[in-house]
Design a protein around this nucleic acid. Structure first.
Length: 466
RNA sequence: UCCCCAGUAGCUCAGUUGGUUAGAGCGGUGGACUGUUAAUCCAUGUGUCGUUGGUUCGAAUCCAACCUGGGGAGCCA
C-alpha cells in the first residue's frame, strides 16, 4: 500500500487493482441507502476531485463516514477501479477511511458547497485555498511561473536576485515603503530638527524596492542576458482591480539589445507561457472558460498564433484622433494615453495585445534612450485587452553625456546615481529591458476580474490581513 | 486620493412612502429515495437589519460622520 495524489488516480497512471491511500479534503459526500457513500476528495494536485466509494462494511461507516462534511480532512485507502458511474474514468473502492480532522460546525464552515462571491472568498483568504477557483488560479500561476523561468533558462538567461531593500529613494517609479528599525515613539533628531537616519539600521534612509531594474542593469552589463523575478512594492494609494501594494515582477535586461529586440523577446516570452498553460493546465483552463470567462482559451490561442501588432505612439495618437469615437479625455501628442485610449487600441482597434513604441520623452523615465528625433524615447508598452499595461520597457540610455543631460533636465541628483553612471563610464553598451507585472499576466491568462484573486494573500491599501 | 454604488440570516439577495410578530433561495440539520456526482423530494432552525451620533411619540427605514466592500478614474506593472 502506498500514498497517491488525486491526479495519479484520475490520470490512469496507477494500474487498476492497485491498493493505495489518497489523502485530502472532502468536497462533498453523497449517501446511497443501498449501503454506500460517495466521497469526493481533493488534494490540489489537479482540478478534479477523486470519488471514493465507501461501502457500509467499513468499520467506522456509521460512526464517522456518514458524518463527514465539506472540509473534513481524510485518508482513504482502497483499490483503484474503473468507475461504474458517469463523470469519471477512475475511482477508489474504499476499504478504510481515516479522519484527520473534523469541521467544527458545518453550518458556519465558511467554504460551504455553494457559490460564493469573490469578495467573500477574499475575506476568507486562508480558506479560499480549498475552493475550485483559487486552486485553479494557483496551479495556473505556478505553471506560468515555471514556464517563464524555463523560457529564460532555455534562452541562456541568468536569474539574478536583486535586493528587496534599497537605499536609493530615487528609483522614480512611485511611492515607497520605508524600512526602519527606529523607535517610532522616540525618533532620534539632528540639531536642526530633522530625523537622524544615521542612527537607523542601515545608517541612512532605506525602502522596499519598486523595481529591480537599475540593479539588474549592472548584471546585464557583464553577464549579458539576465532577468529578475521577485516581489516589488509600491506604496501608492491605488484602489483598483489591477493594482497591488506587493506584487511580483519579471524584468529581463539584455546587453547589446535595442527596443525591437526586447519587443520580440516580450512576444516570444508571452507565447511560450501561454502555450505552457494551455497544454499543462488544460483542466484548470477548461474551468475558467466555463465559469469565469467564456472567451479565455480562444483568446490565448489567438495570441499564440498571431504576430503582435507594433505601433508607434505617434501613429496611435493619429488613429485615436481620427477613429470617430468620442473620448472623455482628448488625445494630443505629448500627453500620456488615458485608460480609455489604451483600451480602444487593444480592445477595439486591434482586438489583441498591442506593442506601443517610441513615446514622447517628457512623459517617460530618465533612463530611457533618446531617439534621434530629439522628441521621443525608445520605450514600449504591451497593452492587453481588458487589463491595459501588462509590460513596460525601454532601451536604456547608454551614452553618459545624454544621460547626464537628462538627469539635469529632470533635476535629479547625479550623486545618487553615481554607480548607475559608472556603468556608462566603464565599457558602456547599448542595452534594453522590460518589466512584466506577473499578477497582471495571471489575471489575463485566467480571465479573472480582480488582481487580488490571483495572488495568495493580497496586500493593498488598508488591506494586509492574514 | 477623487466620483458613483452597496452593507438585512452561515452565504446571495428581496423588503422598508418611519408604526405591532423581518422574507426567499442556497447552505446546514433530520428524513425519503437513488452507482450517486452543483443529485432530487419532504421537513426544519436562524437575525445587536455595518458603527456612532442626530431628528422623531416611535428608526432597519430619514439625516450626518465614520468604517468596510465593489465599480470607475488617477498613479503604474
Amino acid at each position: 500500500m502506498s500514498f497517491a495524489s488525486v491526479v495519479d488516480v484520475l490520470s490512469g497512471e496507477i494500474a487498476v487493482g492497485s491498493e493505495i491511500t489518497v489523502r485530502g479534503w472532502v468536497r462533498t459526500r453523497r449517501d446511497s441507502k443501498a449501503g454506500i457513500s460517495f466521497i469526493n476528495i481533493h488534494d490540489g494536485s489537479c482540478f478534479d476531485a477523486v470519488q471514493a466509494v465507501v461501502p457500509s462494511e467499513v468499520d467506522n461507516y456509521q460512526s464517522e463516514v456518514v458524518k463527514l462534511t465539506t472540509g473534513c480532512s481524510v485518508a482513504v485507502t482502497g483499490t483503484v477501479a474503473e468507475s461504474a458511474g458517469q463523470g469519471q474514468a477512475f475511482e477508489l473502492q474504499a476499504t478504510k477511511v481515516h479522519v484527520y480532522g473534523w469541521v467544527e460546525d458545518p453550518d458556519t464552515y465558511p467554504m460551504s458547497p455553494k457559490r460564493h462571491s469573490m469578495e467573500y472568498l477574499r475575506e476568507h483568504a486562508h480558506l479560499r485555498t480549498r475552493t475550485n477557483v483559487t486552486g485553479a488560479v494557483m496551479r495556473v500561476r505556478n505553471c506560468l511561473s515555471q514556464a517563464l523561468h524555463r523560457f529564460f533558462h532555455e534562452q541562456g538567461y541568468l536569474w539574478v536576485s536583486t535586493p528587496i531593500i534599497t537605499a536609493s529613494d530615487a528609483e522614480g517609479a512611485g511611492e515607497m515603503f520605508r524600512v526602519s528599525t527606529l523607535d517610532m515613539m522616540n525618533i532620534p533628531k539632528k540639531d536642526n530638527g530633522q530625523i537622524d537616519y544615521a542612527q537607523d539600521f542601515f545608517g541612512k534612509e532605506a525602502f522596499l524596492t519598486v523595481s529591480g531594474q537599475l540593479n539588474v542593469e549592472s548584471y546585464a552589463c557583464s553577464l549579458s542576458k539576465v532577468y529578475t523575478f521577485g516581489p516589488t512594492f509600491r506604496a501608492e494609494n491605488s484602489n483598483t482591480s489591477r493594482h497591488l501594494s506587493e506584487f511580483w515582477m519579471v524584468e529581463p535586461e539584455v546587453a547589446f539589445a535595442d527596443l525591437n529586440d526586447i519587443a520580440g523577446l516580450a512576444e516570444s516570452m508571452l507565447k511560450y507561457a501561454f502555450k505552457a498553460v494551455l497544454t499543462e493546465r488544460a483542466d484548470d483552463m477548461a474551468f475558467f472558460q466555463q465559469r469565469i470567462d467564456s472567451g479565455v482559451i480562444d483568446r490565448l490561442q489567438q495570441v499564440i498564433e498571431q504576430d503582435f501588432v507594433h505601433m508607434d505612439y505617434t501613429d496611435a495618437v493619429e488613429i485615436l484622433q481620427n477613429c470617430g469615437k468620442k473620448f472623455e479625455y482628448p488625445v494630443a501628442w505629448g500627453t500620456d494615453l488615458q485608460s480609455e485610449h489604451e483600451r480602444y487600441l487593444a480592445e477595439v482597434h486591434v482586438g489583441a495585445p498591442i506593442i506601443l513604441k517610441n513615446y514622447p520623452k517628457d512623459i517617460k523615465a530618465f533612463y530611457m534612450r533618446q531617439n534621434d528625433d530629439g522628441k521621443t524615447v525608445a520605450a514600449m508598452d504591451v497593452l492587453a485587452p481588458g487589463i491595459g499595461e501588462i509590460i513596460g520597457g525601454s532601451a536604456r540610455e547608454e551614452r553618459l553625456d545624454v544621460l547626464d543631460a537628462r538627469l539635469d533636465e529632470m533635476q535629479l541628483p547625479k550623486e545618487q546615481y553615481s554607480w548607475y553612471r559608472d556603468l556608462r563610464r566603464y565599457g558602456t553598451v547599448p542595452h534594453a529591458g522590460f518589466g512584466l507585472g506577473f499578477e497582471r499576466l495571471v489575471t489575463y491568462v485566467t480571465g479573472m476580474q480582480n488582481i487580488r484573486d490571483v495572488i495568495p494573500f493580497p496586500r493593498a491599501p488598508k488591506s494586509a490581513d492574514f
